[in-house]
Computed example of a mutant assay.
Amino acid sequence: MTPAGRGTAVPDPFAPPAAEPVPPPPLAPGGPGQAPYGYPGGLQGGYAHAAAPPPGYAGTPGQGHYGWTGMPPQPANGMGVTGLVLGIISAVIFCLWPLAVGLGVLAVIFSALGRGKAARGEATNPGHALAGLICGWAGILLGAGFGILVLTTPYW
């Protein structure tokens, strides 16, 4: 209908909006067609053959795409913690002097390796390694001192 004597048509206010083109969905980092882990049938990447993607797909993007590069490597704190634990044990059980001296030597070795890793930036616990070194030496000295005391004391 035209309003009172005009020749232009009034747009219908209740008409649905005109269809606009919708952009395609974004691609996942691995591309379209990724099969979940352990997919039955042995399909790799969602395709029966990697050389022939299904019709209508351009294939997966190359390796040079930008995006999340993954998690940074975790610090290797095992040597310092091992040295600390062995050093504490060797200092506590100094009455068992052969075992205390052996554990103290291991504590010093592991703590020195842990300090080296911390100095290179591979570990984040230089304090644990230093405490293990101190406790390891204390365990060696206490165990050796107690061993000398036991071996030199005469039986009466």
Rank of each mutant, 00 (worst) to 15 (best):
Gly33Thr: 04
Gln34Thr: 04
Tyr37Leu: 01
Tyr37Ala: 02
Gly38Phe: 13
Tyr39Trp: 15
Pro40Arg: 01
Gly41Gln: 10
Gly42Ile: 07
Leu43Gln: 05
Gln44Thr: 04
Gln44Ser: 02
Gln44Trp: 14
Gly46His: 10
Tyr47Trp: 12
Tyr47His: 06
Ala48Glu: 15
Ala48His: 15
His49Glu: 13
His49Ala: 02
Ala51Gly: 15
Ala51His: 15
Ala51Ser: 15
Ala51Phe: 15
Ala52Arg: 15
Ala52Asp: 15
Pro53Ile: 00
Pro53Ser: 01
Pro55Ser: 15
Gly56Val: 12
Tyr57Arg: 15
Tyr57Met: 13
Ala58Trp: 14
Thr60Met: 09
Thr60Leu: 07
Thr60Asn: 09
Pro61Ala: 09
Gln63Gly: 05
Gly64Asp: 13
His65Asp: 13
His65Tyr: 07
His65Gln: 10
His65Ser: 11
Tyr66Phe: 11
Gly67Leu: 07
Trp68Phe: 13
Trp68Asp: 03
Gly70Met: 08
Gly70His: 06
Gly70Arg: 09
Gly70Leu: 08
Met71Leu: 09
Met71Cys: 06
Pro72Asp: 02
Pro72Gly: 04
Pro72Tyr: 03
Pro73Gly: 02
Pro73His: 06
Gln74Arg: 11
Gln74Phe: 00
Pro75Arg: 12
Ala76Ile: 08
Ala76Gln: 12
Asn77Leu: 07
Asn77Gln: 08
Gly78Asp: 13
Met79Ala: 15
Val81Thr: 11
Val81Tyr: 11
Val81Pro: 14
Thr82Lys: 05
Val85Trp: 04
Gly87Pro: 00
Ile88Thr: 13
Ile88Gln: 03
Val92Cys: 06
Val92Leu: 06
Ile93Lys: 11
Ile93Ser: 08
Phe94Arg: 14
Cys95Tyr: 14
Cys95Asp: 12
Trp97Ile: 08
Trp97Gly: 04
Trp97Tyr: 06
Val101Arg: 00
Val101Glu: 01
Gly102Leu: 00
Leu103Glu: 00
Gly104Glu: 05
Gly104Phe: 02
Leu106Met: 12
Leu106Ser: 12
Ala107Gly: 03
Val108Phe: 11
Val108Lys: 13
Ile109Thr: 11
Ser111Thr: 12
Ser111Glu: 14
Gly114Cys: 11
Gly114Tyr: 09
Arg115Ala: 13
Gly116Met: 05
Ala118Cys: 04
Ala118Ile: 09
Glu122Thr: 11
Ala123Met: 05
Thr124Ala: 09
Asn125Tyr: 14
Asn125Gly: 10
Pro126Val: 10
Pro126Trp: 11
Pro126Met: 01
Pro126Asp: 04
Gly127Gln: 10
Gly127Val: 12
Gly127Cys: 06
His128Met: 15
His128Asp: 11
His128Ser: 15
Ala129Arg: 00
Ala129Pro: 10
Ala129Met: 08
Leu130Cys: 12
Ala131Thr: 14
Ala131Arg: 03
Gly132Ile: 15
Gly132Ala: 14
Gly132Asn: 08
Leu133Asn: 01
Ile134His: 01
Ile134Glu: 04
Cys135Leu: 14
Trp137Met: 12
Ala138Glu: 13
Ile140Gln: 09
Ile140Glu: 11
Ile140Arg: 10
Leu142Ile: 11
Leu142Phe: 02
Gly143Val: 11
Gly145Phe: 02
Phe146Tyr: 11
Phe146Asn: 13
Gly147Leu: 03
Ile148Glu: 00
Ile148Gln: 01
Ile148Ala: 10
Leu149His: 09
Leu149Met: 05
Val150Trp: 07
Val150Cys: 07
Thr152Leu: 14
Thr152Tyr: 07
Thr152Gly: 04
